[in-house]
Simulated scan of single mutants.
Amino acid sequence: MPMGRTLVLSLAFMTLWIGLAVADWNILNQRKRNVFGASLKNYCESWRINVELNNIKEFDVVPQECIEYIGKYMTSTQYKADIERAIEESSLYLSSCCSLNGNGKDSWIFDVDDTLLSTVPYFKRHNFGGEKLNITSLEGWMREAKAPALEHTLRLFDEIKSRGIKIFLISSRRECLRDATVDNLIKVGYHGWTSLILRGLNDEYKQVHNYKAEARKQLVNEGNDIWGIVGDQWSSFDGSPSARRTFKLPNSLYYVS
């Protein structure tokens, strides 16, 4: 074969290969190829992990191409296993770390939504985070007081309570939801917390992480020693004062700052 023709064919092959390689980086293009399923799964898992790492912030909705994947994860045994692992680490820390003061000031903080109570049933009816959050609709669902407990968190809650540690619940829910929240918590088995802190009128326009940090500061000013915090959002831990340890539960349905 003449050298010129060989060179042309080689260049053509390289151009085709490079074009395919570049196209592979565009996840939307995978819909036209047999490898679409595997590549999309990888992309959506990477998106979910980076939400958990707090690298992806302030998102309004789950990416359209990942709604099905996120929905499957949030209703899967893997989601339950991930929660169980986080709770086991909390329990191990509790059993080995804490020289409790025994003065009535040993304390632990829990978030409420998707920490004690699950909002997954609500989001299952609203496209698993693929729709922009409608606060009026969500609060209407919360008023029904039908959210199920996260069973592994309930177990940790009871363990902490049995050790004589005071439990504070700090939620971004508004004060107008107090009765429904208390009813829901009691109905699914949570009893004996020291205080449920909800957002009052003065907190309406505060960012959640500032509101929660201020609530913790008030608890510390009252002499409480906060051993741990369990929450599903980074805004439950941001700011100071914090706890000696924090434990993040998975949640890629929404982001609260």
Results as ranks from 00 to 15, higher is better:
126 H>W: 07
173 R>C: 00
160 I>V: 15
152 H>I: 12
112 V>K: 07
142 M>D: 07
141 W>R: 14
128 F>E: 00
173 R>G: 04
148 P>A: 11
131 E>C: 02
174 R>Q: 01
156 L>A: 10
145 A>P: 02
172 S>G: 12
149 A>I: 05
113 D>Q: 09
113 D>F: 11
114 D>V: 10
174 R>H: 04
136 T>H: 03
164 G>W: 00
142 M>A: 03
124 K>F: 06
117 L>T: 09
137 S>D: 15
142 M>H: 03
121 P>I: 08
132 K>S: 06
111 D>I: 08
147 A>S: 13
141 W>Q: 13
152 H>D: 15
157 F>L: 04
171 S>Q: 06
147 A>G: 03
111 D>Q: 11
115 T>I: 10
149 A>N: 06
125 R>F: 02
144 E>V: 06
133 L>V: 09
114 D>S: 10
151 E>L: 14
119 T>V: 07
170 I>N: 00
163 R>I: 04
135 I>S: 10
157 F>V: 03
123 F>Q: 04
146 K>D: 09
156 L>K: 03
142 M>V: 09
162 S>R: 13
162 S>V: 02
172 S>E: 03
130 G>T: 02
129 G>D: 05
159 E>D: 08
129 G>Q: 11
120 V>P: 07
123 F>G: 00
168 F>E: 01
156 L>R: 01
150 L>Q: 10
157 F>Q: 02
118 S>K: 06
123 F>N: 03
139 E>Y: 07
141 W>K: 12
162 S>Q: 08
161 K>I: 03
151 E>M: 12
115 T>H: 05
125 R>T: 09
150 L>I: 15
119 T>I: 05
149 A>L: 06
138 L>Y: 10
139 E>S: 09
166 K>D: 05
166 K>T: 01
161 K>C: 02
174 R>D: 00
119 T>E: 11
116 L>S: 06
124 K>V: 08
131 E>W: 03
157 F>K: 04
164 G>M: 09
148 P>T: 07
156 L>S: 10
149 A>Q: 08
140 G>N: 14
114 D>H: 12
163 R>A: 09
136 T>Y: 08
143 R>G: 00
128 F>H: 00
118 S>H: 08
161 K>E: 05
116 L>I: 13
160 I>E: 08
132 K>F: 09
150 L>Y: 12
173 R>W: 01
134 N>D: 15
154 L>H: 12
121 P>F: 06
129 G>K: 06
123 F>S: 02
167 I>P: 00
114 D>N: 15
128 F>N: 00
148 P>E: 09
170 I>M: 01
132 K>H: 06
171 S>V: 05
